[in-house]
Design a protein around this nucleic acid. Structure first.
Lengths: 355, 355
DNA sequence: CTGAAAGCGCTTACAG
DNA sequence: CTGAAAGCGCTTACAG
């Protein structure tokens, strides 16, 4: 048998500290949480004794059970964390969320929409609230599994009955398309992002059905493009479309190579892309092929990420303030802003890729 | 007075469910947590009844208090979350961490080294363990405030007595410098990252003292550069150095403009940069000034981020596998890998920026 | 295979 | 300003 001397030093609790000091547990708790509930003198004594004994404050797990609040807000991301953390737009959104949470003493729990229910069962009921980002029909079912009575704010999608944060996708797309169409293209084309019901990484043929949901951002952006085409005398149905399944260089590249490697007389001379990532990939690949931008090919993006503005030629794009979207969603979830359907405006940025 | 009918539907608990079904609370708990502890028939009944009544499983807050484990791992980031989420290297690290946590049913809590102690007091005691990334002397004190007896793994810095994950900074820097010095430069220069004790965003003069810590990554990388200089007959003390305070385009740009705008006969013809971000900013600004890369200016980076490889000219750099660093740190914290001091190797990537 | 009971560490009315 | 006591919702030996 071991002697007592070598017993593992059990973590000291609030109760131990109270016993040690000869005061009630309430006073210890108040010393940490409600300074006005006890004399400064006693508080000082408690705090210094706590430090001395290595007690670093009330245990968060116990506190959260008792109070019902954890000061944790969970962000449910549509994609894997791997993808989301490396996507400029998602990163900016998280930035805005984190900024507001920080200031208000909350912390950020990251949940992947892909698997959080099965993999971390119940760990989500720890959060005081949820911000869900860009969930698409398959992952939408997650919402049902989220603990009831916890507030939820949806960003970039529109579930029935929840507060939302959006941007003006349709008007913004319309605006950038109108700008591009001021110079009428010979062969305009559109590159969409996750538009089809069945995965399609390439040319969208008649076999593919667009996503049913009327209010996905991808459908809204396409609607804006098409309205502009119509008004400029171009039949939207005649504009070829390619679809991208994931907004990364690796997934974009083969589709754009397919487009850029078309014979000169079939290759589009205007590419309206639904994201900057798509447009930037097109830019890189076009340069590799000796195509001149904008003379041989004009390109527009969407998002306004830094990478597209810190290079030559700069991208013509729609700048959305994703950081502000995050801030707003966080304020809503913390009850600092009214929980309603909010639409942020965007700004047309004209670069050299489509002057 | 309201009637009972309109009372808010109190969230149903495990106990309620047990009462409703006429079984013990233990069986409910077992139905969710230990399927082998009860008959499949009873389990099915419990699960389906739970679904019917809107009980989505045991409450995480209560469970974590009772079991002492939350299945949450906290990552303490040196910089603000704003910075970290937009930094390619930090994002990759988080990616690797998240990947392993996901697979093992854990979730990721993000803590900013800058403020988590004061702002979210105690909320950190929720985590089962900590991964601290790149903490520098000022933030190093955080370690003392972290709840005791929780495991901690340090990445890219070396606190006394903790397991660590590192890369071979000195040899890697030596290797890339040797490559660059195969062609002897007229005017080599070094751009460091957070090297000085006092903030310095610009030329490092004698007034500035380097950080005291011998084992910061920045000191290791500099040591590698200097060893290579010496071996190639260049006195390291004669090589001018500029320092950058934050690894972002905005903060890098003014310093690099200062360097690039030097008169032709003073402007460096080789720039060894301590990060790809620095080198890429130099690249953009050099191109804007009509400087030819590599003819007028050769550039090397460090990190091997995607952005440096998906453009022309490609960056000559050291590729470190930050995702793997994250995976390893996560495995250590979960007890799936031995908690030791681990050093990952890197790879020299030769691009067109310094052939 | 099932149930009764203790207790994880705290916070908060409430009485003094 | 301080203290005694209840209870947040669960899990887990343990006895049956």
């Amino acid at each position: 048998m071991e002697t007592n001397v070598t017993l593992p030093p059990r973590r000291i609790t609030l109760k131990d500290l109270a016993a040690e000091l000869g005061v009630s547990t309430a006073s210890i708790s108040n010393a940490f949480n409600r300074p006005d509930q006890l004399s400064p003198k006693l508080r000082e004594r408690i705090l210094s004794e706590a430090r001395r004994l290595g007690y670093s404050g009330p245990d968060a797990k116990a506190r959260s059970l008792r109070t019902g609040r954890s000061r944790i807000i969970a962000v449910v991301l549509a994609e894997s964390l791997t993808y989301s953390l490396n996507d400029a737009v998602a990163s900016e959104l998280l930035t805005g969320i984190a900024e507001v949470l920080d200031v208000h003493g909350h912390t950020l729990l990251l949940l992947s929409g892909r698997q959080h229910i099965s993999q971390a069962p119940g760990s989500s009921s720890m959060a005081d609230g949820f911000i869900a980002y860009g969930l698409m029909p398959p992952s939408l079912m997650l919402l049902a599994d989220l603990p009831a009575q916890h507030p939820l704010v949806a960003v970039d999608f529109t579930p029935e009955g929840y507060p939302t944060v959006h941007i003006d996708n349709e008007p913004a797309s319309y605006a950038i398309a109108c700008h591009a169409l001021k110079t009428l293209p010979q062969r305009p084309a559109v590159v969409t992002l996750r538009l089809t019901k069945e995965p399609c990484n390439g040319r969208i043929t008649d076999e593919y059905e667009p996503l049913p949901a009327e209010r996905t951002i991808t459908r809204s952006r396409l609607a804006g493009f098409q309205r502009a085409f119509s008004e400029h005398g171009i039949d939207p149905a005649q504009v070829p479309m390619w679809n991208i399944e994931e907004n990364t260089y690796e997934v974009c590249a083969p589709v754009l190579e397919e487009i850029l490697d078309l014979p000169d007389d079939q290759r589009p001379d205007l590419l309206l892309c639904m994201s900057d990532r798509i447009a930037l990939t097109a830019l890189t690949l076009a340069e590799q092929r000796g195509l001149r931008i904008p003379e041989d090919l004009r390109l527009t993006g969407f998002d306004g990420i830094a990478e597209g503005q810190y290079r030559a030629p700069r991208l013509t794009t729609v700048r959305q303030d994703s950081v502000e979207k995050g801030r707003l969603a966080a304020r809503m979830i913390l009850g600092l802003a009214p929980r309603e359907a909010k639409v942020l405006t965007t700004e047309l940025l004209i670069g050299e890729s489509c002057p």
